[in-house]
Amino acid sequence: MSRVSSFLLRRRGGTRWDWTDVFTWFWLIGGFILMFGPAAWLVNSSFKTPAALAEFPPTLLPYVTELVQVDGYDNALPLYEVTDENGDARVLAEVRRIGIVAQMVDPANPQEIIKVSIQDRTPRRTVSFATENYVEPLVANDFLRYLWNSVFVTVMATIITLLTNSMAAFALSKYQFRGRSTVMMLIVATLMVPLSVIIVPLYSVISAMGLFNSLWGVILPTVATPTGVFMLRQYMLTIPDELIDAARMDKASEWQIYWRIVLPLTAPALAVLAIFSVVWRWNDFLWPLIVLSRRELYTLQVGLNTYAGELNVQWHFILAMTVVTMIPVVLVFIFLQRFITTGIAGAGLK
């Protein structure tokens, strides 16, 4: 405990609390709440039933009213805690409500109807996680399909990105040929060309190729990332050329040099690119929104947006599916966060 407090109260050098120390902790703790709070609230809300979601003020935990099966009634009845005229607390099940009077029964004695003013009763509630929020959209709606589409797009795009980018980076870092600097110039120049500048003609290119309403139409325009080529090339430049000469003396073909020497040695940079690519492609929104118009082809992002845009917004499903959409990225964050942050600090890219 003392270690915790000494950790929390650690200050800059001296013993006096400087205003900067106060500010630092204000910023850190405020940041912690602000950065994680919303996502935590989302996860928390995603386990609530529609009734609990509609409540104001909201509760912290997902409560549901307890139900009980009473003999003589087909449906399960909600349980209430009732204070009767003697001041005793009883647990009764509500049969129906008429105005401000509720007709209730004692589950142990279902024959006798007791009339209770609704002011005298409070619902008896227990904590319960509404997992059907997750199960239903995945099973009954198309979300499993969307999930699969997203996984397919992400995996395929990442594999193709890694392969084509690393091949190009190999050529640009280990061969001397005419036009090499021109190619590099082109790549650097387009580093910052955003999708939004070319969507209109790109759409016609995709349509001409018959890739409209195809997951490949989502995948292909994203894979030739200049960022990836640039990053891998910078890394490959650090591989000594003598190693490649040694492989040539060892009768390795150029393809083997790429595959058996250069690629394994580029593994750290490839891993960074793979992580970036997974996050990018998983999160892509605008382009899939344009290319995919058939529901069964939607990726999770597009599907979620469509659901959230409907007139009758079913928040309980949307919240749960948002959590599902968030999971892979959160996993990446938990396990690879350090890797990514040092990578960004080093390369200054996103």
Partner: peptide, 16 residues
């Protein structure tokens, strides 16, 4: 280089 039947030892050794 591969077809000349020569072997080379490099300054940096160039071991994989």
């Amino acid at each position: 280089a591969a077809d000349r039947g020569l072997a080379m030892v490099f300054q940096s050794y160039a071991l994989y």
